[in-house]
């Protein structure tokens, strides 16, 4: 018994080709027709996710963040989930998961003056939680909010102080 003969491969190649054609046409036209169409090729390295809709860049470098941390001048806020915060976070950071920001806001931010320096962070180069939370806090009246991009990863990698769930 020939397990797999050449005929089935000819047939398979032909079908793969047809499927590819269908997909190319469908993808091309669906992208063309939609209102938020994307370019086929885009330079992702230049895409920043720390720029507000008004064009202001909220990004803070690690060295600036470290400086503020050492002087104790900034409040770090973890935008990730509570479970991720429990597993480890920047020392002294408060937990305000962006997904629960609406109802946890009052409790977490109680007693934090509006002019205090706040640094939000999450994890991953493209994680948007910290940026979303920063915008949320700015809308709530905090003027001095910055984002530490990919914060948890870079903080850990540089051996800066961390802690697990604050008791």
């Amino acid at each position: 018994m020939t397990l797999i003969n050449s005929q089935i491969w000819i047939k398979t190649s032909r079908q793969v080709l047809f499927i590819a054609m269908i997909v190319l046409v469908a993808g091309f036209f669906s992208n063309k027709l939609r209102s938020d169409k994307m370019p086929f090729v885009e330079d992702w390295s230049e895409k920043s996710n720390t720029v507000t809709s008004s064009g202001e860049n909220l990004e803070l470098s690690l060295s600036e963040a470290k400086n503020l941390f050492n002087k104790g001048e900034a409040l770090f806020i973890d935008a990730r989930s509570g479970a991720e915060y429990d597993a480890g976070h920047i020392k002294g950071a408060k937990s305000l998961p962006y997904k629960e920001a609406d109802w946890q806001f009052v409790e977490v931010m109680a007693g934090v003056p509006e002019e205090s320096a706040i640094i939000t962070y999450c994890d991953g180069k493209m994680c948007e939680l910290s940026m979303e939370l920063a915008v949320f806090l700015r809308n709530a009246g905090y003027k001095n909010v910055k984002v530490l991009s990919n914060g948890w990863s870079v903080w850990k990698q540089n051996g800066l102080p961390v802690e697990t769930r604050a008791q």
Binding site: I22, V23, A26, G27, S30, M38, F40, E42
Partner: peptide, 28 residues
């Protein structure tokens, strides 16, 4: 596309192309 970017496997030029065509391949 953002999720594909997060995987940090594909080169930038292929990210949007995958995001546009891959779902249609799955559907087909």
């Amino acid at each position: 596309a953002k999720i594909i970017y997060n995987y940090q496997i594909l080169p930038d030029e292929l990210i949007n192309l995958s995001a546009i065509f891959l779902p249609w391949l799955e559907l087909t």
